[in-house]
């Protein structure tokens, strides 16, 4: 059955294949276009470099009027990522615009990795280390980068 959400997700997928942004990829799961798997590669010149972080994106029939639920499956040590992988990012909450597509979502999360917002922490240890002990923060991030190879 084609609904506006499903039609739009097919378009998002087509665009992601034809015009893939650097360092991110994503595709619907085999039997359900409403659930996607995605990967974000850690941005260069950040402690996340070389990491391959897996995510799931769950859409509802209200997409794109409402944002999807995006979650890291890989462990990510980051001030704005919750222990369960949930992400605290304004465009996925109160700044969502129906003009964002999957490509825009993934590139925004990728830039969140480079530029954390320690004032709105989802992981207070990570936020504190990011502000006060950058060396220890980077060490912890690198540990999760290594973990991401194994996952």
């Amino acid at each position: 059955m084609s609904t506006p959400a499903r039609r739009r997700l097919m378009r998002d997928f087509k665009r992601l294949q034809e015009d893939p942004p650097t360092g991110v990829s994503g595709a619907p799961t085999d039997n359900n276009i409403m659930i996607w798997n995605a990967v974000i590669f850690g941005p260069h010149d950040t402690p996340f470099e070389d990491g391959t972080f897996k995510l799931t994106i769950e859409f509802t029939e209200e997409y794109p009027n409402k944002p999807p639920t995006v979650r890291f499956v890989s462990k990510v040590f980051h001030p704005n990522v919750y222990a369960d992988g949930g992400i605290c990012l304004d465009i996925l909450q109160n700044r969502w615009s129906p003009t964002y597509d999957v490509s825009a979502i993934l590139t925004s999360i990728q830039s969140l990795l480079s530029d954390p917002n320690p004032n709105s922490p989802a992981n207070s240890t990570a936020a504190q280390l990011y502000k006060e002990n950058r060396r220890e923060y980077e060490k912890r991030v690198k540990a999760c980068v290594e973990q991401s190879f194994i996952d």
């Binding site: 639920t69 462990k75 040590f77 222990a83 949930g86 605290c88 989802a122 912890r140």
Partner: peptide, 12 residues
């Protein structure tokens, strides 16, 4: 514990 949970995932 490497991850600190901040009152659950309040936004969600």
């Amino acid at each position: 514990e490497p991850f600190t949970h901040n009152d659950g995932n309040r936004d969600e």
